[in-house]
Design a protein around this nucleic acid. Sequence first.
RNA 1: CGGGGAGUGGCGCAGCGGCAGCGCACCUGGUUUGGGACCAGGGGGUCGGGGGUUCAAAUCCCCCCUCCCCGACCA
Length: 471
Amino acid sequence: MKSGISANRKDDFPGWYQEVIAKAELADNGPVRGTMIIRPNGFAIWELVRDELDRKIREAGARNCYFPMFIPQAFLSREAEHVEGFSPELAVVTIAGGAVLEEPIVVRPTSETVINSSFSKWIQSYRDLPMLLNQWANVVRWEMRPRLFLRTTEFLWQEGHTAHATKEDASKYARMIHEDVYQRVYHDSLAIPTIGGLKSDMERFAGAVSSYSLEGVMGDGKALQMATTHELGQNFAKAFETTFSTSQGTTEYVWQTSWGASTRLMGAIIMVHGDQNGLRLPPAIAPTQVMCVVVRQGESALMETVNAVYEKMIASGIRCAVDSDINVPYGRRSIGHEINGIPIRLEFGPREFENGVATIIRRDTGAREECRFDDLIARCKVLLDTIQKQLFDEAHQLMRGSLENASSLDEAREIASQGRWAEIDFDLIRDAEKYGKLGSGLSTRNLHRSDGSLPLSTSESGLRAYVAKAY
RNA sequence: CGGGGAGUGGCGCAGCGGCAGCGCACCUGGUUUGGGACCAGGGGGUCGGGGGUUCAAAUCCCCCCUCCCCGACCA
């Protein structure tokens, strides 16, 4: 079996990553540095990821809406930490309509501020709470070193923004989003296990009280932050006077959360599941789950059979497509479908047709088997589930194999330098982290309690930290 | 912004003072077709930009721009 990717995944992971994106036609660089063109193949995957997240977000009670991309610069400045955190990466419009603007307009890096300006109008009473909003939008953060999907100057994401009457309610909601939305979707649909935890003070979102993250282990061992969920406390409420009347008639500031997941997830899918032959898509988010390949010209009944199978697949809810382009050599087509990561390939040729069977080829393992026409639908359904599980299991194994205990900072550095993650007592690295002395390229990914549960605060004692290289 | 590398056809590259080339891709015709087919023909270029040296510059010199890789910042 020839590989469709020339860069070696083991020796040249970044080269391999870029080549997969190019050959699978997922994305291109845009004409402005750091921008990204998401091609139809890539966007089709993103749409499925988006649909899964959107469904879960709705289940969590949030409603979709849309806020403007342009924000008055003064809004950003109202929350001191927020503006300080974002100012280096802001794109600012100073000229519009042929004139220099009196007040510059910022292209949103995130929407806490505009949304709060509306919250403060919409929220009057405890009866208006909780207010649970979500929006699918593009945001701009000027990046110094862009990488397709992983770090682009403009990216697509979902940002949830909620306001609650009590700190407890906000806190509970944030944890629910973290676990029941993000972690659930990553496990069930993306087939990617994640490590959840609390961000250290250094890594926390600018303006948040607490930030939780879900971190994934990529194929080269590096970490990728796959979602963040923030408890904003009353920071933005105070900056924007977002207050409400309690049932007792007193006036209080709302307690807020915000949470986001972006097109970066596409990078995770590629880097976690991809292999030397290209992409390997989990069936749940594969735009085409089963590709029916007409191997070569045969009697007309062959083509009729393929069409009948296709119709039945579609009718039974399987995302299916037919490749009957027999003018393109068989090998080229096979390699192409492998690069694209299509979970199952069904081959129909004169050879099989005589016996009333098709050959089933799994993308994840490369295993082949023959299957009678009548059993194809049922067999593919089983295999799609098997492949989904297989990819998760492999990713889980990758994750487990990457984690290693360290009992000193030096030991942690050694582990991380070998492309693994060091788990270490947070107290042993607190100061080193604070002064940026963890080591080059290393960062604290997140913190958890020794029993694995989510901490409430970074000041809790006995916390454990993961230290690793990250994208 | 520091350190390193590279800009030549759509992509990947060679050429490094003397007619602008190669592989892949593309177009036409034919033969093929069970793991990247073959033969024949064809189209496509301001050699990143500007200035200079020279009879002659893709090639040498100066300035500028862009991209990629490694670090400091980030979903």
